[in-house]
Design a protein around this nucleic acid. Structure first.
Lengths: 338, 338
DNA sequence: CACTGGCACTCTTCGCACGCGAGTGCCAGA
DNA sequence: TCTGGCACTCGCGTGCGAAGAGTGCCAGTG
């Protein structure tokens, strides 16, 4: 319903505004882009675009800036994903390959994303519920005290203390350890509850209490709430936000500290590809002037977690989406290898 | 060499400036504090204090603000540590007691510190080198692939993958596991290198390569550089810094992201009690307008790591020091229990 | 000798008027 | 449908003057 040229005008406005951070006027547009029409024509188009809600002017007699709706159209229809260049890809790969363990992978990914996009990076740890069990270990620390260690196929390790209701012998421990592993190793975490349900029955009455305690601790660690961790970096990039940012930066930092908020944000993105949420599309109020670009990553075909960046709505969407997608791909590779 | 009253004037200036964030003049001082002298007298004292470098004026005909040197004198001689109130102590304890594992303890501590002091909180994970070994676990993941898991007495867990030069049988694995644990369990990490040095000699020639690989991986995880982790929180409090903070906040955020910088900062504080580093006393340039209040904490009598806060030099030192000290004490208790 | 009141001086801050320039909307004409 | 022209609107920077806060200095007093 918008003519081709008007879409081009919108694209030009977004590009210029992203570049200059200043409202863009009709004259400047015709000078910087070969639209083949005069400023007056562009003005008419702008009036139409404003009528439709794609752009707005901060105050009368200033240039136009895109609205959230304008960015949305830009992302959906006017711009693609800008692929990384070959050297960039190599740099990403090199940077990630030095990682020694999962923490290191995540930490490096955060740094890398923040640096590439010059924005705030968020990386979620591989989810437990979507991983498979590599190994369950039980260690005896004291006669009535065990440590439960869970290892996933993505290299993630979780540990919990278990206080037993009764002393638990070494042989029982070895027995439990062996039975546990034979049942759950290689299985998905979501299946674990069913797989271990009847395990206490295989033990002597005196050990059943302890076995149940161990199992309930195991199941606890799988509870959604505890199992989602993430790492954040590049917050210094927030200072490039704008000139007015005392007001802008505060709520963003607060939102970033609320990991629950971020997890929900990442969780909402169901799209198999790169997801972009612009301005007010983000449920959390503090993020109303930011956009979130996220994507799932995983060691195999399936996504085990998300990563992404948070930046001003005025961001380079094609470039950011390209960087996020590329990083996710390489992180997946690294995880698959380890 | 400074008269008693001049010290009181300095104290009053610091207190007022911390409260109001505005340069304080002679008249306001006499009104808000019962100094028993006239503004003119205070002016003379201020001139003397300025002469000595304890205070300064941002521009002629504005009030005075304390210099780093002034804050230093204030902290050393004029102010004590303000103890937490009983309800505050209870709140701290309650908040920390719900923690389920070490990550959770650290995360809660960060939140707590940030909330109590309304500043940026930094908590270092218990150091490996200053802890003792609780257990070393070796898991066979594939014929020539092991996972090494290290557990400390403070509940910290580190894991590393080990690629073996040759396949390693279950019996050899059990043997190595047993020998390793009998040598190092309960010993300090710093002693580990000496304790395992001759271990390969106890094995058959074909297994020696793998044993050496395992041991060198073990020693690697003890290297200072890798073993120091920390968690940061409350960065949103940076926005309360001042009115001019586009310039101030940026370098601070950058410094906070450089964990190396922070670790060095915490490491430098040798004082057994609360350490305060004010403004330019901090080696890192980005932190020249901040103060760092830190203290060691530990499960026993000895400190295994540090925690602290980073805030503007204009901070409530007595209150901050009290909060930091109290939190450290309770974290120590929690760690000792777990 | 230490403290006090008074006074002149210095700067910053704020409000206000003014002019400039960028950008717009609208209209008549090609 | 596009274009050039024109009047209009506002935000922004500048300059000036008044107000206010704070200082330094000095002479006077217990």
């Amino acid at each position: 319903m918008l003519s081709e040229r008007r879409l081009q005008v919108l694209r030009a406005i977004v590009q210029d505004y992203v570049g200059t951070e200043e409202p863009v006027g009709s004259k400047a547009l015709t000078e910087r882009h070969r639209l083949g029409v005069s400023p007056a024509t562009v003005r008419n188009d702008m009036a139409a675009l404003e009528e439709e809600g794609y752009i707005a002017q901060p105050h009368t007699s200033a240039g136009r800036i895109p609205t959230d709706k304008g960015y949305r159209l830009f992302v959906d229809k006017l711009a693609g994903v800008k692929p990384m260049t070959a050297p960039e890809r190599r740099a990403i790969q090199n940077f990630l390959e030095g990682a020694v363990d999962l923490d290191d992978v995540v930490a490096r990914t955060v740094r890398l994303l923040a640096q590439l996009t010059r924005q705030v990076a968020v990386v979620q740890y591989p989810s437990l519920t979507r991983s498979t069990v590599r190994h369950v270990e039980l260690l005896s620390l004291a006669p009535a005290r065990l440590m439960l260690v869970l290892i996933t196929d993505t290299g993630r390790v979780e540990q919990r203390m278990v206080d037993c209701p009764a002393p638990f012998g070494e042989t029982s421990l070895a027995d439990l350890r062996a039975r546990l592993n034979s049942r759950v190793a290689g299985r998905r975490f979501t299946d674990v509850p069913n797989l271990v349900e009847d395990l206490p029955e295989a033990f002597e009455a005196e050990d059943r209490g302890t076995v149940s305690t161990v199992l309930s601790t195991l199941l606890e660690t799988l509870v959604e709430e505890n199992e989602e961790r993430l790492m954040i970096g590049g917050t210094a990039n927030l200072t490039r936000f704008g000139h007015d940012f005392p007001l802008t930066i505060r709520p963003v930092l607060e939102a970033l500290e609320e990991q629950v908020v971020l997890l929900k944000l990442l969780g909402e993105a169901k799209d198999p590809g790169v997801t972009v949420r612009i301005g007010h599309e983000n449920a959390h109020e503090g993020l109303n002037s930011t956009s979130v670009v996220s994507v799932g990553y995983g060691s195999g075909g399936e996504a085990v977690a998300k990563l992404g960046v948070v930046g001003p709505t005025r961001m380079d969407y094609p470039g950011t989406m390209g960087a996020v997608r590329a990083v996710a791909r390489y992180v997946g590779q690294i995880l698959a290898e380890s």
